[in-house]
Simulated scan of single mutants.
Amino acid sequence: MYPMTDQKTDEQQPAAEAEEAENFEPLTASYERLRHSTDSAELSEFARRPLPDRSDQAAFSRATALLEAVAGNRHTPVEDRVFLATTMPFPNVLVKLSEDPEPSVRQAVAANEDDKNWLVGRLTKDPVPAVRDHALRNKRTSWKMRLEGAQDPNADAETLDYLGVLGTELEEGAPAVLASMVRRAVALNPHTSAQMLQKLADDPSPEVRHAVAQRQ
């Protein structure tokens, strides 16, 4: 015979399940409620709430869908939007955050290495230099975007220092021709530091060394 405590739990189980079903909010209703909520505390709590285990596919999908609503709500505190932009791997959430009016949020998206390359590419064109720079230093950025970044006369020296060693000190297995084109563009960029130019003067690629010589 089972203990009384277990029997009581078994008897209460159907009632608990019925109450849970009665209080369950459809996904579309929850999404709209969170999307339009002005309750910053509720939005912050949801942003920081651990996701369900992936084995519970329905609950996991629901939670990630609702995070999109939280990410797109400007009443969600900035620090929580930055947290989501930094930690989330989900494209639907990151796309919302990539359009955020707060540059620090877009910068966090730009640095997120779970981004899709097209999303990082979009952020290499951001009007805020810090966002562009983080996007260009993201390993997800395409070589086309890296080349355009290296050619940008507004690129800062720190970003050019990063682009100037692609294929040599960083990403040594990178496509040689593409990496060389990026380093050559760095050599020709007016914002490239003297230290980087000195390093590029000894580059293994003749095209890069020739570009440095053109600067002298």
Rank of each mutant, 00 (worst) to 15 (best):
M1W: 10
P3T: 02
D6G: 09
K8H: 07
Q12F: 11
A21N: 13
N23G: 11
L27Q: 11
E32V: 10
L34I: 05
T38H: 13
A41Q: 14
E42I: 01
L43T: 02
L43S: 00
L43Y: 03
F46V: 04
A47Q: 01
R49C: 02
P50N: 09
P50Y: 08
P50V: 02
P52D: 07
D53I: 12
R54P: 06
D56Q: 12
D56E: 12
A58S: 11
A59I: 07
S61E: 15
R62N: 00
A65C: 11
L66R: 02
E68M: 11
N73G: 00
P77V: 08
E79Q: 14
T87E: 08
N92Q: 10
K96M: 10
S98P: 05
D100L: 01
D100P: 01
S104W: 09
V105P: 03
R106F: 01
R106W: 00
A111E: 13
A111S: 14
D115S: 14
K116R: 15
R122C: 13
R122D: 11
K125N: 14
D133P: 02
L136N: 00
R140I: 04
R140K: 15
E148L: 13
A150M: 10
Q151F: 05
D152Y: 03
D152V: 03
A155W: 05
D156M: 05
D156L: 04
T168N: 04
L170M: 12
P175D: 00
A176P: 06
V177T: 08
A179S: 04
A179L: 05
M181P: 03
V182M: 08
V182Y: 01
V182K: 04
R184V: 00
A185W: 02
N189H: 01
M196K: 07
L200M: 06
D203L: 06
P204V: 07
Q216D: 12
Q216G: 15
